[in-house]
């Protein structure tokens, strides 16, 4: 239902407008002597808080292991489909124990032109391998440069100590004996053929 609101009838004083203008001028004049609230950007930097959602990056743990196992859940959850992962086997000749991890991303692309910084990738990651970092200065000379590849993502993410390291040392605990070493037997059988 339409509700009629009567307009406030101006008094002759208000109708002069000049007092209102004067008070406006007073306001702006006073404002001139307030401290500046802006930041001189390239020299001064804003404080970046821990939960700031900047560019996503991949992290390594304290052993230098890339934590991502290319489970592709971030690729699945990513609302703008910015993430593309090429999964693959664990890298050859890695210095740390890959016996239980087996899998690692061969390539990992995040299209920063598509990324909306929602942080879902960080939230869904079961390996705590992808984080929204404090990196907010993204600029490039071409569109291709803003598609971050694995190398760039590890540069952004850097190293982040992992207190749990759930995959570490699993093979050390392998129960002694009891299992036939199938790899040996398989190889021997092949030679015997």
């Amino acid at each position: 239902m339409a509700k009629v609101v009567d307009r406030h009838k101006l008094t002759w004083y208000e109708e002069l407008y000049l007092p209102a203008i004067a008070s406006g001028l007073k306001r702006t004049f006073r404002q001139m002597f307030q401290p500046d609230i802006t930041l001189q950007y390239p020299e001064e930097r804003p404080q970046i808080y821990d939960d700031y959602r900047g560019a996503p990056g991949l992290v390594r743990d304290q052993d230098g292991r890339e934590k991502c196992v290319s489970c592709q859940l971030c690729e699945y959850i990513c609302p703008p489909k910015a993430i593309v992962i090429v999964p693959g086997e664990a890298p050859e000749g890695a210095t740390y124990d890959y016996s239980h991890i087996e899998k690692a991303p061969r390539e990992f692309f995040i299209d920063m032109l598509r990324c909306i910084y929602c942080g879902y990738c960080e939230e869904i990651c079961p390996e705590q391998a992808i984080f929204m970092t404090g990196e907010y200065e993204l600029n490039a000379g071409s569109r291709q440069e803003l598609v971050h590849d694995k190398k760039r993502l590890y540069e952004i993410g850097g190293l982040r100590p992992d207190p749990i390291q759930k995959w570490k040392g699993k093979d050390d605990r392998l129960d002694a004996g009891g299992f036939t070493d199938l790899r040996k037997r398989g190889a021997g059988a092949e030679e015997g053929e």
Partner: peptide, 8 residues
């Protein structure tokens, strides 16, 4: 205008 808007 900058001063009036708390800018530099």
């Amino acid at each position: 205008s900058a001063w009036m808007q708390d800018r530099v």
